[in-house]
Amino acid sequence: MILDPLQPGSGTIRSQHYLPATGRNVLWGRLPCAADAAVLEVDSGAEVTIDTLSHEGILEDQGRDPRRFFGSHGVDGDGVLDDAIAIAASDYPRDRASDGPHVVTGPIRIRGAKPGDLLKMTLIEALPRVPYGVISNRHGRGALPGEFPVGIETVSAFAAVDEDADGRRVGTLPLVAAGPRSVRFPLNPFLGIMGVAVSGDTRPHSVPPGPHGGNIDINLLTAGNSLYLPVQVEGALAYVGDPHFAQGDGEVALTAMEASLRVTVRFDVLSQTDALQQFGQLVGPLAETSEFLVPTGMSTDLDEAVQHCVRAAIALLGARYGMDSHLAYAYLSAATDFNISQVVDIVKGVHARIRVADFT
């Protein structure tokens, strides 16, 4: 089990490039745009170790005092992250009514990236910074608005990290409030937010995902896996945030097990020519694992999100393997799972899992 928190600058830092979640390195509630200055610049192929901060425990409806909030769940003051305390106590100009909750670290400029290229972001490592997380339901914004939360504005369930009999880290949640029995579930750390800056001078809200990536919440994007994003501005201006220890497809209660991570991400630029040859004309995020190609679809309407994902999958199979569209449609129906990424971020997400082994 994790004993000591990974405070800024302490503990394991894998890369020669390190970006703490402090000062000017973070945005709170908004995502970068073309007008934002990079806080770090690296070459294509570089790895960067990045501290990320969960928004849970620092928000106004939780008292905006992480020491007090986590202390009420038995966390010693030394077990609370210094950067979380600092941003909660700061006068950061976040408007609760119009800005999102997420803290994002960046943006990072990747030399040579230009519109038309693809940026490949590969999660190399994801280290939990604390041995606990929070799962919240608020704003009537989960899958069951009007039913949950019941009677109060916010329910924030504290989830601890423990070890199972085989020494693997698991999340634990009580079966009843303050009860002795608990349910255990696997931890699969990943970043809910991976993205590139949008064009123009308006920072997007941090909640809805889009062609820029952002809050896509695809739980397949664990260590070793990659996300491809169409570059919109010179240098890409990439960023990460919304760290999770675990999440089920759908993320139905609004958040999953939200908790801060120290991640190492490799940034690779694919030229427009190479991108077209490998993937065709991507209009949105595409994930890749050792087993699957994972096209995505997004819309405020879940039916439309599924349709967008199916069209993206058909186009991908045509570009990648030369597959006729009617046969690709048939193959997808017979052999591919379409999963709901999340239904709680205004713009809903769907992703398909296309087995690459089927085409070897």
Rank of each mutant, 00 (worst) to 15 (best):
Leu127Tyr: 05
Val306Tyr: 15
Val233Ser: 09
Glu60Lys: 13
Leu221Lys: 05
Pro101Ser: 15
Val80Gly: 09
Tyr18Ile: 00
Phe69Lys: 07
Phe359Ala: 11
Met257Lys: 05
Pro131Phe: 14
Ala313Gly: 15
Arg68Pro: 08
Gly71Ser: 12
Leu81Cys: 12
Ile2Leu: 15
Ala34Gly: 15
Pro204Arg: 04
Val170His: 02
Asp301Met: 11
Ala236Tyr: 03
Asp51Leu: 11
Glu304Met: 14
Leu332Gly: 13
Pro230Lys: 05
Ile85Ala: 13
Pro145Asp: 10
His326Ser: 14
Leu6Gly: 09
Lys114Leu: 07
Glu258Ala: 15
Leu59Thr: 11
Glu291His: 14
Gly235Lys: 04
Gln7Pro: 03
Gly195Phe: 01
Arg24His: 12
Leu81Pro: 09
Ala328Val: 04
Ile346Gln: 10
Ala287Trp: 00
Arg181Pro: 00
Gly112Trp: 05
Glu47Cys: 10
Leu53Asp: 02
Ala315Ser: 15
Arg141Ile: 00
Met257Gln: 09
Leu229Arg: 06
Ser182Ala: 15
Ser10Ile: 00
Asp345Val: 08
Gln16Val: 10
Ser260Pro: 13
Ser333Gln: 13
Gly9Tyr: 08
Pro174Asp: 00
Leu40Ala: 13
Ala256Asn: 14
Asp36Gln: 09
Gly213Lys: 06
Ile346Ser: 14
Gly100Ile: 01
Arg353Leu: 15
Tyr228Phe: 15
Asp95Arg: 12
Val39Cys: 10
Thr22Tyr: 07
Phe185Leu: 03
Val265Cys: 05
Val233Arg: 03
Ala84Leu: 11
Leu261Arg: 04
Gly74Asn: 13
Thr105Val: 10
His17Arg: 08
His17Trp: 07
Ser299Asp: 15
Pro115Ala: 09
Thr255Lys: 06
Tyr329Pro: 00
Ser341Arg: 01
Ser199Glu: 12
Ile340Leu: 11
Ala319Arg: 06
Pro145Cys: 14
Arg129His: 06
Ala236Val: 04
Val26Met: 08
Phe267Trp: 04
Thr122Asn: 07
Leu27Met: 14
Val183Asn: 08
His244Pro: 08
Val265Glu: 01
Asn219Ala: 15
Gly77Val: 03
